[in-house]
Nucleic acid binder design. Structure first.
Lengths: 254, 254
DNA sequence: ATAAATTCTTGAACGTGTTCAATATTTGTG
DNA sequence: CACAAATATTGAACACGTTCAAGAATTTAT
């Protein structure tokens, strides 16, 4: 029985089996969908015992997590040339979003499973969970590079700069959620959406620096920073002491 | 065997059984949680056969859907006095959001299951699905009342007015997602978040009418309207003909 | 080279969501 | 009221995710 990962030496037997199970699973998920692929299918095709799959992967859903990790690493690699080449914030963000879509496209049939745990506070797979913090940080780090390495005509205030990676991460999650539902040829709708929203996001960043709206933005960013600390597993400060509601934005009552 | 819904006459046998199963399920979900409650538990406690539960509810998850429907109806009832009393947009929205939180509070332990299908385009339970359109419309109708019945100092442009109910619906979904993760006493964190974000939302509405940002807002709203038609199961217009990217917001490059 | 320790593999069994043919009960009609 | 049609109920069985004790294989230590 030849090893399917013969181009990657130094794997012991267990690591080889783990990779085989994962490759087999992803292949079957791609072909048939997540629900239609059973663990028995995977074990059979990989020529291992059913229980063996659970030695390496805690659950069927953990197999999906592995796919996400993989695309995360691939995005890191793919983002280097983009960020080296592009200068404007818009082009950088657009490049990254397009790369993201390309990398996840083969998994369209089952990528939605990623969202299954979003409503389960106890699941380690939950994108908002502490356990997912590492992965989330990798993602936001890329967005920090998008912004930090851009040649700008405006100065982004420090408080906005601090929150942008996370805001862009949420933006990305929204786009992925849309993409999951997108059945148009070549995901044309999602690409169109990105074209427009990247432009809008860039302009909103400019608007957020305007003096007229600055107090409200400051306040909003403070709020976001506070609640982000929940997400990043930091101690939560007392909200009411941190944010004063009746600041200089009181003339904006609708 | 006395009927548990004796105060609601005119139910035939089937309807009585359906109600009994649902009540039993929701009770057990509340006590033990969704995952820990099996369909066998429900059938046994309701004194019906296991297979009978499937005669009335297509799946375990459909039981959750019924809870959502119920809170939707309860919110309709609860929103009347609030909307009759409050005049300002802020107070109205705050009232509705608070009412929403109160109504769903008993179900905190299992409300997250609602989000499980958000990533499954094929699931009829998906909040974004065509099948959920009716429910969604009820929800957005409430938000339309929030805005439409408010006494305002500004004139909300028609395009913004048309999109606000859906935007507020998405806002609400975000708040509920946060609430699901909120373990603070009496959901104080979520209440604090609402206090602040309702105020911010109100002010953002004002800002959206400013001439300086108006072109960008118009464009964004057109984009939203286009993609909302996907959601509302309407024919999708050709995006590129509907929205001109290089309009009067071109001075906003960051 | 051999023994000990560790890791990997296995398949029977379990729990739980779901199905469905057979039967019982209810409803509607003359 | 009787009977036919429609609806409701049932429990055995199935499918599939998961578990785990026993045994095999691999790795490590001497």
């Amino acid at each position: 029985m030849s090893s399917p990962k013969s181009e990657t030496p130094k794997l012991n037997k267990g690591q080889q089996t783990k990779a085989l199970i994962l490759e087999t699973a992803l292949e079957l998920f791609r072909e048939r969908g997540y629900e239609q692929t059973t663990m028995r299918d995977i074990a059979e095709k990989a020529n291992v015992a059913l229980g063996n799959t659970y030695y390496y992967f805690r659950s069927k859903e953990h197999l999906i997590q592995a796919f996400y990790h993989r695309t995360q690493e691939e995005l890191l690699a793919a983002s280097e040339p983009i960020l080296a080449k592009e200068r404007s914030l818009k082009a950088r963000l657009l490049g990254i979003m397009r790369a993201r879509l390309e990398l996840i496209e083969p998994y369209h049939q089952f990528a939605g499973v990623l969202f299954r745990t979003a409503g389960d506070p106890k699941s380690p797979l939950n994108p908002f969970s502490v356990e997912s913090l590492e992965t989330r940080k990798q993602s936001t780090a890329t967005f920090e590079q998008v912004v930090g390495g851009a040649r700008l005509r405006i100065a982004i205030p420090a408080d906005l700069y601090a929150e942008l990676p996370n805001l862009l991460w949420i933006y990305q999650m929204g786009i992925i959620l849309f993409w999951i539902h997108d059945t148009s040829p070549n995901r044309i709708r999602t690409h169109q959406l990105i074209e427009h929203t990247v432009d809008i996001v860039a302009k909103l960043i400019t608007i957020a620096t305007f003096p007229l709206v600055r107090p409200l933005i400051k306040r909003t960013l403070r709020l976001l920073a506070t609640f982000r600390q929940d997400l990043d597993n930091l101690p939560a400060p007392n909200l009411d002491e941190e944010i004063d509601k009746d600041e200089l934005d009181s003339g904006l009552e609708p």
